[in-house]
Simulated assay, not measured.
Amino acid sequence: MATRAEKRLSVVEVTRYRPRDVEYHAYVEVLNSRAVRAAEDAGWTVNRVAAADVGTASLLALTDASEAIMLMGGEDISPRFYGGDEDYPFESQHFETADEGQIALVHRALRRGTPLLGVCRGLQIITVALGGDIVQDLGTDTIHKNLGAPIRDIMAAHPVGLERSSRLAADLGTRELVVQSAHHQAVGRLGDGLVAVGTAPDGVVEAVEHVHAPITGVQFHPEDPGAPAGQLASLVARLGAREAALV
Protein backbone atom coordinates (compact mmCIF):
# COMPACT_ATOMS: atom_id res chain seq x y z
CA MET A 1 0.00 0.00 0.00
CA ALA A 2 1.17 3.53 -0.72
CA THR A 3 2.56 5.77 2.01
CA ARG A 4 0.46 8.64 3.29
CA ALA A 5 2.55 11.03 1.17
CA GLU A 6 1.57 9.19 -2.01
CA LYS A 7 -1.97 8.05 -1.31
CA ARG A 8 -3.83 7.35 -4.54
CA LEU A 9 -7.44 7.96 -5.50
CA SER A 10 -9.19 7.17 -8.78
CA VAL A 11 -11.88 9.52 -10.07
CA VAL A 12 -13.90 7.35 -12.44
CA GLU A 13 -16.20 9.08 -14.92
CA VAL A 14 -18.35 7.73 -17.73
CA THR A 15 -16.52 9.02 -20.83
CA ARG A 16 -14.24 11.81 -22.03
CA TYR A 17 -16.05 11.97 -25.40
CA ARG A 18 -19.63 13.17 -26.00
CA PRO A 19 -19.71 14.49 -29.58
CA ARG A 20 -23.52 14.12 -29.60
CA ASP A 21 -23.96 16.56 -26.70
CA VAL A 22 -21.11 19.05 -26.47
CA GLU A 23 -22.84 21.42 -24.05
CA TYR A 24 -23.69 18.64 -21.59
CA HIS A 25 -20.17 17.27 -21.85
CA ALA A 26 -18.67 20.67 -21.06
CA TYR A 27 -20.77 20.89 -17.89
CA VAL A 28 -19.85 17.36 -16.80
CA GLU A 29 -16.21 18.28 -17.38
CA VAL A 30 -16.59 21.18 -14.95
CA LEU A 31 -18.04 18.88 -12.29
CA ASN A 32 -15.46 16.14 -12.70
CA SER A 33 -12.58 18.61 -12.77
CA ARG A 34 -13.78 20.10 -9.50
CA ALA A 35 -13.85 16.63 -7.95
CA VAL A 36 -10.27 16.04 -9.09
CA ARG A 37 -9.12 19.35 -7.65
CA ALA A 38 -10.83 18.69 -4.32
CA ALA A 39 -9.09 15.32 -4.05
CA GLU A 40 -5.73 16.86 -4.93
CA ASP A 41 -6.29 19.61 -2.37
CA ALA A 42 -6.88 16.87 0.22
CA GLY A 43 -3.48 15.37 -0.58
CA TRP A 44 -4.45 12.57 -2.92
CA THR A 45 -2.55 11.65 -6.06
CA VAL A 46 -5.46 11.48 -8.50
CA ASN A 47 -5.89 9.05 -11.34
CA ARG A 48 -8.74 10.10 -13.65
CA VAL A 49 -10.23 7.29 -15.74
CA ALA A 50 -13.18 7.18 -18.16
CA ALA A 51 -14.86 3.78 -17.85
CA ALA A 52 -16.53 3.69 -21.27
CA ASP A 53 -13.29 4.57 -23.04
CA VAL A 54 -11.12 1.79 -21.60
CA GLY A 55 -13.36 -1.25 -20.93
CA THR A 56 -13.75 -3.31 -17.77
CA ALA A 57 -10.43 -5.16 -17.72
CA SER A 58 -8.40 -1.99 -18.28
CA LEU A 59 -10.51 -0.03 -15.80
CA LEU A 60 -9.80 -2.58 -13.09
CA ALA A 61 -6.10 -2.61 -13.96
CA LEU A 62 -5.81 1.19 -14.06
CA THR A 63 -7.46 1.55 -10.64
CA ASP A 64 -5.88 -1.49 -8.99
CA ALA A 65 -3.36 0.50 -6.92
CA SER A 66 -5.86 3.09 -5.69
CA GLU A 67 -6.63 3.35 -1.98
CA ALA A 68 -9.99 5.04 -2.70
CA ILE A 69 -12.47 5.45 -5.55
CA MET A 70 -14.93 8.14 -6.61
CA LEU A 71 -17.63 7.23 -9.12
CA MET A 72 -18.93 10.36 -10.81
CA GLY A 73 -22.21 11.38 -12.41
CA GLY A 74 -23.35 11.03 -16.00
CA GLU A 75 -25.83 9.22 -18.17
CA ASP A 76 -28.51 6.72 -17.11
CA ILE A 77 -27.48 3.15 -16.37
CA SER A 78 -28.71 0.69 -19.00
CA PRO A 79 -31.93 -0.99 -17.77
CA ARG A 80 -30.52 -4.43 -18.59
CA PHE A 81 -28.33 -4.21 -15.49
CA TYR A 82 -31.31 -3.92 -13.13
CA GLY A 83 -34.21 -5.47 -15.05
CA GLY A 84 -35.89 -2.18 -15.92
CA ASP A 85 -38.05 -1.18 -18.87
CA GLU A 86 -36.25 -0.47 -22.13
CA ASP A 87 -38.27 2.67 -22.90
CA TYR A 88 -39.00 5.36 -20.29
CA PRO A 89 -39.42 9.16 -20.09
CA PHE A 90 -36.32 11.32 -20.53
CA GLU A 91 -34.16 8.28 -21.27
CA SER A 92 -30.56 9.30 -21.92
CA GLN A 93 -27.83 7.71 -23.99
CA HIS A 94 -26.47 4.55 -22.39
CA PHE A 95 -22.81 3.59 -22.02
CA GLU A 96 -23.03 -0.10 -21.17
CA THR A 97 -19.25 -0.53 -21.13
CA ALA A 98 -19.07 2.11 -18.39
CA ASP A 99 -21.92 0.46 -16.50
CA GLU A 100 -20.23 -2.92 -16.58
CA GLY A 101 -16.84 -1.58 -15.53
CA GLN A 102 -18.13 0.59 -12.71
CA ILE A 103 -20.28 -2.24 -11.35
CA ALA A 104 -17.15 -4.41 -11.30
CA LEU A 105 -15.34 -1.66 -9.38
CA VAL A 106 -18.04 -1.67 -6.69
CA HIS A 107 -17.77 -5.46 -6.35
CA ARG A 108 -14.00 -5.22 -5.95
CA ALA A 109 -14.23 -2.35 -3.46
CA LEU A 110 -16.63 -4.41 -1.38
CA ARG A 111 -14.28 -7.43 -1.41
CA ARG A 112 -11.20 -5.37 -0.55
CA GLY A 113 -12.77 -2.87 1.83
CA THR A 114 -11.70 0.02 -0.42
CA PRO A 115 -13.33 3.36 0.48
CA LEU A 116 -15.70 4.35 -2.33
CA LEU A 117 -17.89 7.40 -2.87
CA GLY A 118 -20.56 7.42 -5.55
CA VAL A 119 -21.98 10.75 -6.76
CA CYS A 120 -25.42 10.88 -8.48
CA ARG A 121 -25.09 8.13 -11.11
CA GLY A 122 -22.34 6.76 -8.85
CA LEU A 123 -24.89 6.15 -6.09
CA GLN A 124 -27.11 4.39 -8.60
CA ILE A 125 -24.20 2.22 -9.78
CA ILE A 126 -23.60 1.16 -6.17
CA THR A 127 -27.29 0.30 -5.82
CA VAL A 128 -27.44 -1.74 -9.02
CA ALA A 129 -24.12 -3.48 -8.36
CA LEU A 130 -25.46 -4.75 -5.04
CA GLY A 131 -28.73 -6.04 -6.49
CA GLY A 132 -31.00 -3.02 -6.17
CA ASP A 133 -32.94 -1.20 -8.84
CA ILE A 134 -33.78 2.27 -10.12
CA VAL A 135 -36.87 4.45 -10.32
CA GLN A 136 -36.54 5.23 -14.00
CA ASP A 137 -38.16 8.67 -13.97
CA LEU A 138 -39.37 10.94 -11.16
CA GLY A 139 -41.87 12.76 -13.36
CA THR A 140 -42.29 16.43 -14.13
CA ASP A 141 -43.42 17.53 -10.65
CA THR A 142 -39.96 17.28 -9.14
CA ILE A 143 -37.66 19.21 -6.82
CA HIS A 144 -34.61 17.35 -8.11
CA LYS A 145 -33.97 19.03 -11.44
CA ASN A 146 -34.87 22.27 -13.22
CA LEU A 147 -36.62 20.62 -16.14
CA GLY A 148 -36.29 22.45 -19.42
CA ALA A 149 -33.60 24.81 -18.13
CA PRO A 150 -30.32 25.40 -19.97
CA ILE A 151 -27.64 23.00 -18.79
CA ARG A 152 -25.89 25.74 -16.80
CA ASP A 153 -29.12 26.22 -14.78
CA ILE A 154 -30.16 22.58 -14.50
CA MET A 155 -29.21 22.14 -10.83
CA ALA A 156 -32.00 22.50 -8.27
CA ALA A 157 -31.37 23.29 -4.59
CA HIS A 158 -33.30 21.41 -1.91
CA PRO A 159 -32.80 20.14 1.65
CA VAL A 160 -31.74 16.64 2.67
CA GLY A 161 -32.21 15.16 6.11
CA LEU A 162 -29.59 12.72 7.40
CA GLU A 163 -30.20 9.87 9.83
CA ARG A 164 -28.89 10.75 13.28
CA SER A 165 -27.02 7.44 13.64
CA SER A 166 -25.38 7.53 10.19
CA ARG A 167 -21.64 7.80 9.62
CA LEU A 168 -22.40 10.51 7.09
CA ALA A 169 -24.12 12.72 9.67
CA ALA A 170 -21.26 12.17 12.11
CA ASP A 171 -18.58 12.96 9.55
CA LEU A 172 -20.34 16.04 8.15
CA GLY A 173 -21.31 17.27 11.61
CA THR A 174 -24.91 17.94 10.67
CA ARG A 175 -28.27 16.27 10.11
CA GLU A 176 -29.53 18.88 7.64
CA LEU A 177 -27.95 19.64 4.27
CA VAL A 178 -28.83 21.93 1.39
CA VAL A 179 -27.77 20.24 -1.83
CA GLN A 180 -27.59 20.77 -5.57
CA SER A 181 -29.17 18.03 -7.66
CA ALA A 182 -29.98 17.34 -11.29
CA HIS A 183 -31.39 13.83 -11.58
CA HIS A 184 -34.54 12.37 -13.08
CA GLN A 185 -33.89 8.88 -11.69
CA ALA A 186 -33.47 7.64 -8.12
CA VAL A 187 -32.88 4.61 -5.95
CA GLY A 188 -35.75 2.14 -5.98
CA ARG A 189 -35.03 -1.12 -4.13
CA LEU A 190 -31.86 -0.81 -2.08
CA GLY A 191 -28.98 -3.12 -2.88
CA ASP A 192 -27.80 -5.77 -0.40
CA GLY A 193 -26.11 -4.27 2.64
CA LEU A 194 -27.16 -0.70 1.84
CA VAL A 195 -29.17 1.53 4.14
CA ALA A 196 -30.80 4.84 3.24
CA VAL A 197 -29.27 7.55 5.46
CA GLY A 198 -30.41 10.69 3.63
CA THR A 199 -33.79 11.66 2.17
CA ALA A 200 -35.29 14.65 0.40
CA PRO A 201 -38.62 16.18 1.54
CA ASP A 202 -40.46 14.10 -1.08
CA GLY A 203 -38.98 10.86 0.26
CA VAL A 204 -36.42 10.29 -2.50
CA VAL A 205 -33.28 8.60 -1.20
CA GLU A 206 -30.39 11.08 -1.36
CA ALA A 207 -27.66 9.16 0.49
CA VAL A 208 -26.83 5.54 1.23
CA GLU A 209 -24.19 3.73 3.27
CA HIS A 210 -23.10 0.12 3.35
CA VAL A 211 -23.63 -1.48 6.74
CA HIS A 212 -20.07 -2.83 6.91
CA ALA A 213 -17.95 -1.62 3.98
CA PRO A 214 -16.68 2.00 3.61
CA ILE A 215 -19.03 2.58 0.67
CA THR A 216 -21.17 5.73 0.48
CA GLY A 217 -23.40 7.14 -2.23
CA VAL A 218 -24.97 10.59 -2.56
CA GLN A 219 -27.60 11.41 -5.15
CA PHE A 220 -26.74 15.11 -5.12
CA HIS A 221 -23.76 17.00 -6.57
CA PRO A 222 -21.34 18.34 -3.93
CA GLU A 223 -18.93 19.09 -6.79
CA ASP A 224 -21.29 21.58 -8.43
CA PRO A 225 -20.07 25.22 -8.26
CA GLY A 226 -23.34 26.16 -6.57
CA ALA A 227 -23.03 23.59 -3.77
CA PRO A 228 -22.43 24.89 -0.24
CA ALA A 229 -18.78 25.66 0.48
CA GLY A 230 -16.95 22.76 2.07
CA GLN A 231 -19.49 20.08 1.18
CA LEU A 232 -17.31 18.36 -1.41
CA ALA A 233 -14.18 18.71 0.74
CA SER A 234 -15.97 17.06 3.66
CA LEU A 235 -17.02 14.08 1.55
CA VAL A 236 -13.52 13.71 0.12
CA ALA A 237 -12.12 13.87 3.66
CA ARG A 238 -14.33 10.90 4.57
CA LEU A 239 -12.46 8.81 1.98
CA GLY A 240 -9.15 9.67 3.59
CA ALA A 241 -10.46 8.92 7.07
CA ARG A 242 -11.84 5.52 6.01
CA GLU A 243 -8.63 4.68 4.14
CA ALA A 244 -6.51 5.60 7.18
CA ALA A 245 -8.57 3.28 9.35
CA LEU A 246 -7.70 0.40 7.03
CA VAL A 247 -3.91 0.95 7.08
Rank of each mutant, 00 (worst) to 15 (best):
H144Q: 13
L105Q: 04
S166K: 01
P150I: 03
D99F: 09
T97S: 15
D171T: 05
L177C: 10
K145N: 11
I151G: 05
A98I: 10
H107L: 07
G148E: 11
M155I: 07
I151S: 03
L130Y: 06
D141M: 06
P150G: 02
G132N: 07
G113D: 07
L123C: 11
E163K: 01
R112N: 02
V179T: 11
A129M: 07
Q124K: 08
L123H: 11
I151E: 13
T114D: 04
Q136A: 06
P150N: 00
H144S: 14
A109D: 09
R112T: 13
I125H: 03
A98P: 03
P115S: 09
D171A: 15
D137A: 08
V160L: 12
A157T: 15
P159F: 09
V179A: 10
A104P: 11
A169K: 07
V178T: 15
K145Q: 12
V106W: 01
R152M: 02
L168K: 02
I103Y: 00
P150Q: 05
E163I: 00
V128W: 06
V135Q: 13
V179D: 10
A157Q: 12
H158I: 14
D141S: 15
A170T: 01
I125N: 00
L116G: 12
P159A: 15
G131I: 13
L110K: 12
Q136Y: 07
R167S: 00
T140S: 14
T174P: 03
V128K: 04
V135F: 08
L177Y: 03
R111D: 15
I143R: 13
A98V: 08
A149L: 05
R112W: 01
D133W: 03
R121P: 06
A104H: 05
M155Y: 14
A149S: 10
K145G: 00
H144T: 13
D153M: 06
A109N: 11
E100G: 01
D133N: 15
G139K: 09
E176G: 02
D141F: 01
V160R: 07
G131F: 08
S166E: 00
Q124Y: 04
M155A: 14
R111P: 04
R121D: 10
G131Q: 09
D171V: 02
V179P: 05
L172P: 06
A156C: 13
L116Y: 06
V128G: 06
G101M: 00
